[in-house]
């Protein structure tokens, strides 16, 4: 049936798919290949002292890793950090704050949103330095300065016990803006008549949020959860500048642990094994989230 003209038209129609090729080549060389490399090197004893000679040592990096206290500690801290900072702090609090913002006066909403967004827009290096000076105990940082001038006792926010909460706080501070924007957009998309109807019913505000609005935000929630968890899992700069993983490893997130293993202990094989574990966590989490999208 197809005539030559038709075939030519068909080709013309499909020629546009060639545009995909350069992009995919670029992605494969600089993005996908390093993913492969990190798996490959994780099975070797490659070291920074000599990167051209290494031998394959099977799973022994992983075995050593799961035996080491440092790694167990780091894994625990990372998961706790994800749970508190990303899921509770940014996603959950973020959705509530976004809802509260929608019921306030226009200019008030603008000012508060802007302040939260400024934090989000702050480059992480600056944020790390700022938070260090804000939380510092010795020398007296901003918070302790105000605490002591109001007659309260100074608090060491960066001690082995408290530093983990400090980095969660700093991370919520920098990430909240992103969630709020997503939720503000989501709430706008809700059919106003539904919210109006809930007012008519005389539903209490909190019930209204959890029973009516929260479920309608499902799409925003999943998008937000997916991106926020992955961003938080990859957090390095802010925490590295703020605590460098210390004191005594109490804020040693997997990323920082990986960096130290590679560039202080010079064990690149080990560091790649840590990297692979980060990647696997990311894959597991995103598969779970993506399943929700498919259901929809």
């Amino acid at each position: 049936m197809q005539t030559a003209i038709n075939r030519k038209l068909n080709f013309k129609k499909n020629a546009i798919f060639l545009i995909l090729i350069p992009t995919f080549i670029y992605l494969i060389i600089f993005f996908i290949y390093p993913i492969y490399l990190s798996f490959k090197y994780s099975f070797t004893n490659i070291s920074l002292y000599d990167i051209s000679h290494y031998t394959y040592i099977g799973f022994s990096n992983y075995v050593d890793l799961f035996k080491s206290h440092g790694f167990q500690n780091s894994l625990y801290i990372t998961l706790l950090f994800l749970l508190v900072s990303a899921i509770f702090g940014q996603m959950f609090l973020g959705s509530i704050i976004a809802y509260l913002l929608t019921i306030t006066q226009k200019y008030f909403k603008l000012i508060v949103t802007t302040i939260i967004l400024i934090a989000w827009a702050t480059p992480q290096v600056t944020a790390g330095i700022m938070w260090y000076s804000t939380l510092s105990y010795i020398p007296t940082g901003t918070i302790n300065f105000f605490l002591s001038s109001f007659g309260f006792k100074s608090i060491n926010f960066l001690s082995t016990k408290t530093a983990i909460y400090s980095i969660m706080l700093a991370n919520i501070w920098i990430g909240l803006g992103f969630s709020i924007l997503i939720f503000l957009g989501g709430i706008q998309n809700i059919n106003p008549s539904i919210i109006k109807a809930s007012y008519m019913d005389g539903t209490k505000p909190f019930t209204r949020f959890f029973a009516i609005i929260f479920p309608l935000l499902k799409k925003s929630i999943i998008t937000d959860l997916l991106l926020i968890t992955l961003f938080t899992l990859g957090t390095f700069t802010l925490i590295y500048v703020l605590t460098a993983g210390g004191p005594a490893g109490s804020t040693n997130l997997l990323t920082i642990y990986q960096y130290h293993t590679a560039f202080s202990l010079f064990s690149l094989g080990f560091a790649n094994a840590i990297g692979v574990i980060i990647i696997l966590i990311a894959i597991v989490l995103s598969t779970i989230y993506l399943r929700f999208i498919k259901v929809e």
């Binding site: 993005f31 993913i35 968890t229 990859g234 692979v276 990311a282």
Partner: peptide, 8 residues
């Protein structure tokens, strides 16, 4: 998009 780039 959300890949933990640091590990790469």
């Amino acid at each position: 998009t959300g890949f933990p780039v640091f590990s790469l």
